[in-house]
């Protein structure tokens, strides 16, 4: 019988691997960025699974703080990637 925590952690590892594979094989920028997001979601899920300490105890706050920081970083990086892509597209259209 697998515990819920392990299940979530394994899911996280699975999502991370799917994202990693897609990042490496896709050539197109947009699909690569999407794949990176999937990859990131996998890592965050692993962190959240780590934080779980059973039903009686509250979850460990440190991994939650880490995930929050990680999400902020990932969102800003993605915004920048899209902005760069937009600029490149403008240059190509000229």
């Amino acid at each position: 019988m697998i515990s819920e925590q392990l299940l979530f952690a394994l899911c996280g590892i699975g999502i991370f691997s799917i994202g990693l594979r897609a990042t490496l094989i896709h050539q197109q920028l947009l699909s690569r960025l999407l794949a990176l997001n999937v990859c990131g979601a996998g890592v965050f899920l692993i962190f959240i699974a780590i934080a779980y300490r059973g039903e009686t105890q509250i979850a460990d706050p440190v991994p939650h703080a880490l995930v929050l920081t990680g999400i902020v970083v990932a969102v800003s990086a993605m915004a920048m990637a899209l902005a760069l892509r937009h600029k490149l597209k403008d240059l190509n259209d000229e």
Partner: peptide, 9 residues
């Protein structure tokens, strides 16, 4: 940027 993001993840 994309290779750097992959590295950090």
């Amino acid at each position: 940027l994309s290779i750097g993001l992959l590295g950090s993840l």
